[in-house]
Design a protein around this nucleic acid. Sequence first.
DNA 1: GTCTATAGAAGGATAGAC
DNA 2: GTCTATCCTTCTATAGAC
Lengths: 208, 208
Amino acid sequence: MARKSGSDGKKTARILRAAATKLFAQYGYAAVSMRQIATEVGVQAGALYLYTPDKQTLLFQIMDRHLDDLLNAWAEESATQPTEPMAQIEQFVRFHIRFHLDRVDAVFIAYMELRNLSPENFELIESKRRQYEDLLEAILRNGGKEGSFSLCDSRLSAYAIIAMLTGVTTWYRGDGRLSANNIEEIYLCMVRGLVSHSGADQPSSTGP
Amino acid sequence: MARKSGSDGKKTARILRAAATKLFAQYGYAAVSMRQIATEVGVQAGALYLYTPDKQTLLFQIMDRHLDDLLNAWAEESATQPTEPMAQIEQFVRFHIRFHLDRVDAVFIAYMELRNLSPENFELIESKRRQYEDLLEAILRNGGKEGSFSLCDSRLSAYAIIAMLTGVTTWYRGDGRLSANNIEEIYLCMVRGLVSHSGADQPSSTGP
DNA sequence: GTCTATAGAAGGATAGAC
DNA sequence: GTCTATCCTTCTATAGAC
């Protein structure tokens, strides 16, 4: 229970993470001071240390929660997974774009601030990211084996698809010429092409 | 002329930019101190200000030169441009991958440190990046009009291709399972698919 | 052209009053 | 739970000797 009006531990901790997420995304982890964060939260700098042991942990928690959210959201989404590989990929593309456009700040941090993690924290985050890549690769591999896809390379296709989809967050503005739905359709179209290369008249092999 | 042995202005300036590039890429602009850079260069912190007016200019120069190098290198490369659009795209893909794998540090900085540029510097850099995107889009548009490509959306195809190609720099290690040549072939294969979507049996339209 | 020394500001984190 | 005050470190940038 809170002892003072208008504040309690859990709530302030949430506000703190939200404020830090916003500021880290905008200026970068190293460029943001604890005093700036405190101002954004509406408390004094010293009070922050009631909710986080230090700045590094704050960064790690933001990234870690983001990746947990991602993995959990996909687990839920893919609980009702279609059987057709092309439909699975479509589900993935739509999911990835929607999820990432909904939390541009956290996405940005999770990609840009890896350098600022301690080595142990870095490993934890990277392994969760790999998990996500593996989920996509599994869909691709299965669809390739089944004959629904014609892949150039399953691992690199997974990397390429995630890179191009996540890239949307770098240029998307809600008021642009395209709605999030338009964008989903266009990227679906591109991904379909990417997983369906017509090998016949191409000089390159299908993999290393 | 240098007045002391082993040093002269131009040379030290080059060494300074190289040291800053390395450190900014590794730890991030905001996290690197002028003292660290000085140590890397092998001089004292104060001496750096003979070669750069401040830290911000140092960052800007690294990015600006990188984009100039990119645009100049492509200008030279495309001086001998094939006439066939598919061959043009192949030339672009190979060029982009090779160029970017050759200078991972500068690429990293040019993407990650945009936030740390002053507004004027930011605009200069962004306009050069747009120039490069426009070059690719022109190839795509032309090939689409000519019937060599079947595009989902020319602008977004340009974004997607650049994002997936540049993404190589985030995972490529010289000692991995794939050589730079293997990688070029695989990405060529994927890009060919991406620009050749077979619209017949697809529910989505070709653009907004 | 490089050094040492330092000004002056800002950083992360803690102590203790309330 | 939050504040003020503060410790100690580190930062960018400059001044002036050599």
